[in-house]
């Protein structure tokens, strides 16, 4: 494997880890709200969260390119925040949009499955809302958090169309593994593509295996 291949792997891991962490952080309150609220906004917001599932990734990437670009409607904002296309930060933002439903939905389901009862019990024992969230909800929703992390991470690792459209294929900034494999195929370097794709599959398999074991252990406990 070449230095470029290794660079692409490292970048992909960095991107997927960061995106997963950020999505867990932002997705938890959103999923909590979606699971609890009776607001009439619930269904439109839930539908919006699911939208990235509908658009083909390259199409989504194309519109992000137009939207985030310096002349796009959000250009001023993205420029000020450094979230423009062709940057790692821009890629993080795009990947978060792309993987959003994969993190929010498992969390929402896990929160909904807990139901109001354990929280009511906690409240009668004078637990503050934060207390009961930390000591009741989080442990009960752990399988949901694991699913959300696995799906968010795996989906970001496998992301291709969005990166292709807004990445600009810059080594160590936006050239992730999927793009590197694609380039090998396009350049007819099939042997290099096979090695890299093989590594990606093996790595993903091991990660998913470990996490699934983890999850089974929790469920059995």
């Amino acid at each position: 494997m070449s230095a470029e291949d290794l660079g692409a792997i490292w970048l992909t891991l960095k991107l997927a880890t960061l995106v997963t962490l950020l999505l867990l952080l932002l997705g938890t309150p959103l999923a909590w709200w979606l699971a609890r609220t009776r607001s009439p906004w619930k269904t439109p917001i839930a539908a919006l969260v699911a939208m990235p599932l509908v658009l083909p990734p390259t199409v989504m990437g194309f519109y992000l390119l137009l939207l985030l670009g310096p002349q796009g409607p959000l250009g001023q904002l993205t420029q000020a925040l450094g979230l423009l296309p062709f940057s790692f930060a821009g890629l993080v933002l795009a990947s978060m949009l792309y993987s959003l439903p994969f993190v929010v939905q498992p969390l929402q389901n896990a929160f909904a499955a807990i139901g109001p009862r354990p929280l009511e019990v906690a409240a009668t024992l004078r637990a503050s809302p934060w207390d009961s969230f930390r000591h009741v909800v989080l442990p009960l929703a752990r399988p949901g958090f694991i699913s959300a992390s696995v799906l968010g991470f795996a989906h970001t690792v496998g992301e291709f169309g969005v990166v292709l459209m807004i990445g600009g294929n810059i080594p160590d900034k936006t050239r992730v593994v999927s793009v590197q494999i694609y380039d090998h195929v396009e350049a007819m370097q099939y042997a290099n593509a096979h090695v890299l794709a093989g590594c990606l599959l093996l790595f993903s398999f091991v990660v998913l295996l470990i996490l699934n074991r983890q999850q089974r252990k929790i469920v059995h406990d």
């Binding site: 390119l65 310096p70 796009g72 250009g75 296309p85 807004i166 600009g168 810059i170």
Partner: peptide, 20 residues
């Protein structure tokens, strides 16, 4: 400063959209 499109079409999109 180089950004690479997957094809000449994409290089065009990068410029036409004002990103490059």
């Amino acid at each position: 400063r180089l950004v690479q499109g997957d094809s000449i079409t994409q290089a065009y999109q990068f410029v036409a959209s004002g990103n490059a």
